[in-house]
C-alpha cells in the first residue's frame, strides 16, 4: 500500500539574487512499512524535500499525498492534523525541550493529542530505548546519545505511520550513532512504521530498503535493495 506520493513537486524561494529553485519536478512514491534514505551532498535539497514530504512546508507547485490525504490542498491547520495523526520526527539536534524531563519530553506529543495514558506509554517507550532509569533526568543531564534515544522514544510513542528523521546521527560519534541506528530500525520493524530519513552517512543509508540520491533538487538515482541482501551485508 502506498503511504506517500509526490508528483511533479517544485520548490522555489526568492533570494536577494532572484528566484532559487531548490526542488525541481520531483516525483516519488513510498510503500508503507519500508525504509527510505534520501542521500545527497550538502545543499542538494534533501532537508527541504523531507520538510515537504512531512507537510512541514508546502511546495511551490505539485501534489503531495500522505496517508491518502492531499497535503498540498490543505492549509497549515489541516497539515498539522495530518502530522498529528500520522507523522513522527527525529532531528539531528534532538529538539528536546530543556525545561522538561526525559519522561515529559516523551509525553509531550501524547499530551498534545489528549492521550489519557500518556505517562504509561511514555515510560514504556523510555524502557524500550533503555532509559527507564533516567526518566526524571533533564536533557542537559543526558549524553548526546541518550538525548537522541529520548527523541526516538518521543517519535515512536505517538505510534506514527511515517517517521521522518533528519540526520539522526549527525551530532553523534560513530559508536553512539550505531546504537541509535540499531534502535531506530528495531522499533521501525516492530511497529511496521515507514521510515524516511535524510542522511549523508552511507552506513545509515545502507540499512534502508531504498536509497534515493538527489542532486540540485532532482532525483539522480533510486535504488531498492532486497531485505535479505541487507541481512547478508550485516552478517558479513
Amino acid at each position: 500500500m502506498r503511504i506517500l506520493k509526490a508528483q511533479q513537486i517544485n520548490k522555489t524561494v526568492t533570494t536577494s539574487d532572484g528566484q532559487l529553485t531548490i526542488i525541481e519536478n520531483l516525483s516519488l512514491s513510498v510503500e508503507q512499512g519500508t525504509s527510505v534514505a534520501i542521500v545527497g551532498a550538502s545543499g542538494s535539497g534533501k532537508s527541504t524535500l523531507l520538510a515537504l514530504l512531512a507537510g512541514l512546508d508546502v511546495p511551490t507547485s505539485g501534489v503531495i499525498e500522505l496517508n491518502g490525504k492531499d497535503l498540498t490542498a490543505m492549509d497549515e491547520e489541516g497539515r498539522a492534523k495530518v502530522r498529528a495523526e500520522s507523522v513522527g520526527f527525529v532531528f539531528q539536534s534532538f529538539q528536546l525541550l530543556p525545561g522538561l524531563s526525559a519522561l515529559e519530553n516523551v509525553m509531550l506529543p501524547l499530551e498534545l493529542h489528549g492521550a489519557p495514558d500518556a505517562e504509561v506509554r511514555a515510560r514504556n517507550y523510555l524502557e524500550r530505548v533503555g532509559l527507564g532509569h533516567r526518566v526524571a533526568h533533564y536533557p542537559k543531564q543526558l549524553s548526546g546519545g541518550e538525548q537522541q534515544r529520548v527523541a526516538i522514544a518521543r517519535a515512536f510513542a505517538s505510534e506514527p505511520k511515517v517517521l521522518f528523521a533528519d540526520e539522526p546521527t549527525g551530532n553523534l560519534d560513530s559508536v553512539t550513532g550505531a546504537t541509535v541506528i540499531e534502535l531506530l530500525f528495531d522499533l521501525n520493524r516492530e511497529q511496521g512504521t515507514t521510515l524516511i530519513l535524510v542522511t549523508h552517512e552511507q552506513r545509515l543509508a545502507n540499512r534502508c530498503l531504498r536509497q534515493i540520491t538527489i542532486d540540485a533538487g532532482a532525483i539522480t538515482s533510486d535504488l531498492s535493495v532486497d531485505e535479505d541482501e541487507i541481512r547478508v551485508e550485516l552478517s558479513e
Binding site: 512531512a54 512541514l56 497549515e76 491547520e77 498539522a80 492534523k81 495530518v82 502530522r83 498529528a84 495523526e85 507523522v87 520526527f89 529538539q95 525541550l97 509531550l108 506529543p109 498534545l112 493529542h113 505517538s158
Partner: peptide, 16 residues
Amino acid sequence: VDTVALLKSLGAEAPK
C-alpha cells in the same frame, strides 16, 4: 520559538 515550532511539527495547530 523552538518549542512552538516543535509543538507544531508534532501536529499542534496554531489555534491550539
